[in-house]
Computed example of a mutant assay.
Amino acid sequence: MAQQYDVDSPAAVVSAIVLGTLGVLSFIVQPALVQGFVTHLHVGEPEALNLAGIEMLGVAISSIAMALGSHRYDWRRVMAAALLVAALGNGLSAMASGGGTLWAARFIAGLGHGAIITLSFTFVGLTRKVDRNIALYLALLLTYGAIGVWRMPAFLDRFGLPALFWLFAALLLLGLATVRNVPRTHEARAEVPEGARDLPHGMVAVALAGVLAYNIAQGIAWAVLFLVGIAAGLGEQSVADALFASQVLAIGGALASVFLAGALARDRAIMIGILGGGACIALLLAHPGIVLFAISVCGFNVLWNFVLPFILGTVGEFDTRGRMIGRAVAMQMLGLGTGPFLAGLLTNGSSYTLVELACIFFFLASFALLLLPMQAHRRLLAPQG
């Protein structure tokens, strides 16, 4: 079965991209969703951030479980089960009135979403054109994210949070139609990429720590951007408009990685993306007006989606068995889940300076950590050069 399956077929690639988008239904609109918790559940910012964090904790747990054990299971069955669990969690969220019931429901939803995300990225990692396919995936989810963040305040005002969660549940159930195009195992990989080399275990651990640090920075920033704008005195819809613009422009960032994949060295692209992202967050330290806020969030989002295909494509070549993408995505989800919790601990509801400084620190740490295994990988390639 695995040998007959074409992981590079249009149906397989499209299914991976669609399923990956379903996996991040709530995360990609998280800034507006966190503000929705504040506005419609009448909770404080730390509790709203923790609600996002408990879902991301579920995402992280299932992502790690998939990264460690996915080779033992039939991926189609796991994907179908994950879609059903995520739909169940969102349905329970729609029926919850708040408190511990909602926390449990978001955690259940996160368990399903995490497995969907990890398996979808792993599928893409088996294809010949990893960078391109990840970028196409980002373009689709960013299109959804742009519209979702922009219109969510109006949607929640008109229909409420339960309607949003019912919508998520329905979309996840529709995703079951794509499961037949999912590969069953890692053995569906057609060939080992030319640049893939087996790095020592220590360097692999350093690379994964770099991915983790980068995504902690992203998780912190993405959870608080809406709140930072509100704290700066900007109107709710103005903040939503700025985030909408950032999502639209981020599509260009993702597509730019497609066209520059062969022309721009990965290590240079990673340096630009990570350090530039930290610089954009630094702009928010100045208590920004709407123009500076828009520049900051647009630059942050463009660089995030520009550099992510390069990071995953690079880390994916640190072993020859096709398992590094899944492990990297597990670190990605763990980082994105840790970020909101750290943000909740560091904010007092009126100042986000400590949150922004922590975000910048993790950006810098991630670049330093990723630099070491990239250099080790380059040395392994040198004899073939």
Score class of each variant (00 low, 15 high):
F168C: 11
A169W: 08
L171Q: 08
L173A: 15
A177V: 15
T178F: 10
R180D: 11
N181K: 01
N181E: 04
V182F: 05
P183Q: 04
H186Y: 12
E187H: 03
E187L: 07
A188Y: 06
A188R: 11
R189Q: 11
R189Y: 06
A190Y: 07
V192F: 05
P193A: 04
E194W: 06
P200N: 09
M203C: 05
A205C: 11
V206D: 00
A207N: 14
L208S: 03
A209P: 09
L212C: 01
N215L: 04
G219A: 05
I220E: 05
A221I: 06
A221L: 09
W222T: 13
A223W: 00
V228K: 05
G229P: 01
A231T: 08
A232F: 13
G233R: 10
G233Y: 06
G235N: 13
G235W: 00
E236C: 02
D241K: 11
D241C: 13
A242M: 09
A245I: 04
L249T: 14
A250T: 02
G253P: 07
G253K: 06
A254T: 14
A256H: 02
S257T: 08
S257H: 05
A261F: 06
D267V: 12
I270F: 01
I270G: 07
I274P: 02
G276V: 11
G276S: 09
G277V: 03
A282D: 05
L283C: 03
H287Q: 11
P288G: 05
V291D: 03
L292H: 13
F293N: 02
F293Q: 03
I295T: 13
I295W: 00
I295P: 05
S296P: 08
G299S: 15
G299K: 14
N301G: 09
N301S: 14
V302G: 09
L303A: 00
L303Y: 13
L303W: 00
V307P: 09
L308Y: 09
